[in-house]
């Protein structure tokens, strides 16, 4: 177990290295010289530019620049400390450290994705188990239709339709935005009203995936002997299905957690934009629009880290929940 864990961690290293290389190359390919962008005002002289380029190590060769960007300047001549030491550079426009901006935005995205994960997981679980139990009935057919439909809808469009209906037409829910955490006069209901639409829209593909998965797994499990035993003991159907069948059907779910996390953070990029949710996704899209490269590169690395960690977590949980599985 420990060896496996250790090996998987080691395997992630070249991947992280590759991600940083891609980010770096993208910034190199990007039009526009960072020094030019940062010294756009007429108060800067040519000497200032040379000094700034030197401070940022931009006067070095390309491989050297990459190394400095990764681990900082070992000769101590320029200011960069490198991304591995937590220095993602400074935003061109906000003039603040990228990491600081990230830290401000992460809680919002975390709140949104966590609620979506739990909401979608719960709905998907119940629908999936019921679908399996009521196999080939009207409920099952409708549930299966929705699971394909939820995949086929453009998420952003579904979000816009919900806004059009629940906010503009009926006026029940706010159009967007997120409430600050530290205001005491904001009730939980207010927060829930702001979260309802974005988290549901983010959850739909997860609901689709989860319900299909639970249906298949439950169908597999309810044929097993211990389920027959549970029936023979005279347990109520709800206990048999949810306590005995669903619990075991849930075990392989850790295998889809990795892909689910990837789809959630990708979905968040689009959904945060529609619902004016001040998270990482919106920060990224805004930075791409304004060509704020340090933020863009930071986002790519950040997103990749989440995916890599999600996959690692998925693997570890799989070994942890099922002792029969010994991955090589």
């Amino acid at each position: 177990m420990t060896t496996y864990l250790f090996r998987r961690l080691l395997q992630a290293i070249p991947t992280i290295f590759g991600v940083t290389l891609i980010s770096f190359l993208i910034m190199q390919a990007a039009p526009g010289d960072p020094v030019q962008i940062m010294t756009f005002s007429p108060t800067f002289t040519a000497a200032d530019r040379v000094r700034l380029a030197h401070e940022l190590c931009l006067d070095r060769s390309l491989p050297e620049q990459y190394l400095v960007w990764l681990v900082g300047d070992l000769r101590g001549e320029c200011q960069m400390r490198g991304i591995f030491r937590g220095d993602f550079g400074e935003s061109f426009f906000e003039r603040r450290p990228v990491l600081e901006l990230f830290m401000e935005r992460v809680p919002a995205t975390l709140e949104l994705t966590a609620v979506a994960l739990i909401l979608g997981g719960t709905i998907g679980l119940f629908v999936g188990v019921l679908s399996a139990v009521k196999r080939a009935t009207l409920f099952d057919n409708i549930a299966r239709l929705f699971s394909v439909l939820f995949d086929a809808l453009p998420q952003f469009w579904f979000g816009l339709l919900l806004i059009m209906f629940f906010s503009v037409q009926l006026g029940w829910l706010p159009v967007g935005g997120r409430l600050p955490l530290n205001k005491p006069d904001i009730t939980l209901v207010d927060r829930a009203r702001h979260l309802a639409m974005p988290s549901f829209v983010l959850a739909i593909s997860w609901i689709a995936l989860m319900s299909r998965f639970m249906r298949a797994e439950t169908l597999e499990v309810i044929r097993q002997d211990y389920v027959r035993t549970a029936w023979a003991k005279g347990l109520e159907p709800s206990k048999v299905y949810f306590k005995h069948a669903a619990r075991n059907a849930l075990v392989p779910i850790v295998t889809i957690l990795g892909p689910a996390i990837t789809s959630l953070i990708t979905g968040a990029v689009v959904i945060e934009r529609i619902f004016s949710w001040p998270g990482m996704g919106r920060l990224t899209v805004d930075a791409v629009s304004s060509r704020d490269y340090p933020i863009v590169m930071g986002s790519v690395i950040f997103g990749a880290l989440v995916v890599i960690l999600g996959n690692l977590l998925s693997d570890f949980l799989l070994v942890a929940v099922d002792p029969r599985i010994r991955l090589q």
Binding site: P14, V288, S289, R291, V296, G303
Partner: peptide
């Protein structure tokens, strides 16, 4: 395999956005 693992770990939409913007 290294290229595959690397590309797989970056959410595709991010790369699409960046290349699309540039």
């Amino acid at each position: 395999m290294w290229v595959i693992n690397t590309l797989d770990s970056i959410p595709q939409l991010f790369l699409l956005l960046i290349v699309g913007a540039l």
